[in-house]
Structure formats: C-alpha cells, structure tokens
Write a protein that binds this DNA or RNA. Structure first.
Lengths: 128, 128
DNA sequence: CCTTCATACATGCAATTGCATCTACATTGA
DNA sequence: TCAATGTAGATGCAATTGCATGTATGAAGG
C-alpha cells in the first residue's frame, strides 16, 4: 500500500508539472487506442481498468468534454454505447506517454536492479 | 496498480460487510496504539501513513466525532496538537484487526507461496 | 404477448479529496 | 524589538468518488 501510494503520488506529480490530466485518463485512452477501431464498450473499459461503473461513466463525460473521446450508438443492443477515441484523444495519449514512461522509469525502474522488475511483476500478478 | 486496486477493494469490501469503517481509520488508530502514551502529533501520523495534511486533519475530525480519538493541546509548541486514542479507539482497532488480518491472509497470503511474500515485501520496499 | 427479471449505462445526492489559503504560533536575523 | 519567513494545523470551495437508484433495453418463461 505504501509503495503504491508513493509511486502513484510521484507519477501524478509529474503529470501535474507537465500540465497533463490525471493518470486515470491515460488508462482509458490507452485501452481505446489499443482496441480494434479505437472503440470499446464502457463495460469493457470497466473490466480492464478496474474503474467502478459510475466512475467510468463520469470519466467518459470528462474525456468527451475535452474532445478526447466521443460516444456513439451501439446498434446491436440499444442499451449499449461505443466509446471512440478521437485523434485528439490519441494525440493526448501519446503526449501523456512521454511523461509517463519517464516517470515509470524514474520511480520504478531506477529503483529495481536487474531482473527484479520481472520478479515484482510476477509476484503482483499472483494477487489478481 | 491493478494488483493494489484489487487487493484494496477486496479488503474494503470485507470491512464494509463487517460494518466497519474504511481502512484509513485503521492506519491512524494503529499508529496511535503503537505510540508511546497512545498519542502522536498530526504531522507524525501524516509521515507514517502518507496521508495528505488536509486529509488527515479531516480524518481526525471524523475519528474524534466517533469518540475514537481526542485532540489535546501540545504545551511545548502552541501550534501543535496531540492526537490521543481513546479506549473506544483502541477497541475499534482491535475489532478491525479481526477482519483485517483474515482479509490480508485471504487476499494476499493465500495467493503467494512459501517465501514469496517476503520477496514481494523486499521488492516493494525498494520503491519507497 | 406480457410479466418478471437481468443488463448497460446514467445520475441525484452525500461523503471524501484536492487545492489554495488562512490562522496561530515559532524562529531568525537585522 | 520587530519585520520577515517558516511551520503546524484548519478550512472554504470545487472536483471527484461512492452509494443508491433511475431509465432504457433485452431475455426468458408462462
């Protein structure tokens, strides 16, 4: 818990210094950029980011408000929606990655020797 | 990040099911119970829990509202305060530990084999 | 069909968090 | 002594989160 708080705070601080939105935005944009056609259903994003349904719903509101994604109808099921990254969203993800990758490096990579990162990832993987 | 969210959510869920307050309360009560005389200065709690100053200030409000701690004057420095656990606070910590310990066991211990927990702790320790 | 139950997503409202700033007291150095 | 600066903690206000529930649609059974 402490390790996570420290690393997260350090990363968020880096984002703020760079004038970028919070880390949560990155996770959603990343999932979308990865996805076929740059689009996913909210419940899919929910599953991969572990965001609560209502939090994701509002995060999408904010992303949409900034023009980084847009919602589209999902015709096969009237209840569903598509969330689609815009080119602005894609560009923002890339811009965030510039900061994020350095940040991960500084606050995680630099503190672990050799194959320790692999081992840490393996152990944490067992907790999910 | 994912591993932490999963574990934290699982623990918070256990707390809620047991009708207990959030995990953050435990951290503060624990620090106080450990401390000499059951009392600490807010800035000391802040350092050991990694809570933001304003968040701790308000968490203490809530703890005080429930009678789990009380604030006392700190005579050597007019700016300072003592935060003191009450016997109710101490009892609450013990009650929370009943749930917490099982929760840690179930969501962390049970998922790691042999000395993996040690190794995980060592690696995470390097991140702080 | 139509009732009942389930699923996808949104939203009103209360609680918590973050940010900026405030108050009160302490320390330093002319 | 006193102005300037620093530290401990509190707090107003906006943003975010959590909880409960709402709306709309789909699926299943009689």
């Amino acid at each position: 818990m402490h390790a996570q708080r420290r690393v997260l705070q350090a990363i968020e601080t880096d984002f703020k210094k760079a004038g970028l939105p919070p880390l949560g935005w990155y996770d959603v944009l990343w999932e979308l950029v990865q996805a076929e056609g740059g689009r996913l259903r909210p419940f899919e994003i929910e599953a991969s980011t572990l965001l609560a349904q209502y939090n994701l719903s509002r995060l999408i509101d904010r992303l949409e408000g900034q023009g980084l994604v847009r919602r589209e109808a999902f015709d096969d099921d009237g209840r569903g929606r598509w969330v689609v990254v815009t080119s602005e969203g894609s560009a923002m993800r890339a811009r965030m990655w510039q900061v994020y990758s350095r940040s991960i490096d500084a606050h995680v990579g630099a503190k672990l020797a050799g194959d320790e990162a692999q081992e840490l990832a393996r152990l944490l993987g067992k907790l999910r």
